[in-house]
Amino acid sequence: MNLIIAIMTALLFGAGIYLVLEQKLLKILFGLSLLTHAGNLFILSVSGDPTGKIAPIIKNTAQAPYVDPLPQALILTAIVIGFGVSAYFVVLIFRFFREENETSLEEVFTNNER
C-alpha cells in the first residue's frame, strides 16, 4: 500500500514541479495544486500501512490496532488552506489578465522590463 502511495507522490511531485517551471500562469496554478496534493498524499503515508487496522472510533476497551488519526487531521487542515490559496491565485491571475491582457509571464517580462 505504501509503495503505491510513494509512487503516486513521486509522480505528482514530478508533474507539479514541471508545471510550476512553465511560463503560463494557469500551468503554474495547476502545478501548485498538484504539489499540494502530493504533499497531502505524503502526509497520509506517515500514518503507516493501514492493512488490517480499524478506523480509530473506539467504543470500549476491546481494541484492535487502529490507524493513526492525526495525519488525517493534518491533511484536512492542509486541504482547506490549499483550497483557499488556490482560490486566491485564480483571482490574482484574473487581475493580472485584466492589467496585461496576457497570462504568460514570459511575454510580460520580456516586453516591458523595467
Partner: peptide, 16 residues
C-alpha cells in the same frame, strides 16, 4: 502586480 508572483509562488512551494 506581476512582481508579486515570484513572492507568492516561492512561498506556496515553501508551504508544501
Amino acid at each position: 502586480v506581476k512582481f508579486a508572483f515570484s513572492y507568492i509562488t516561492i512561498n506556496l512551494i515553501g508551504s508544501t
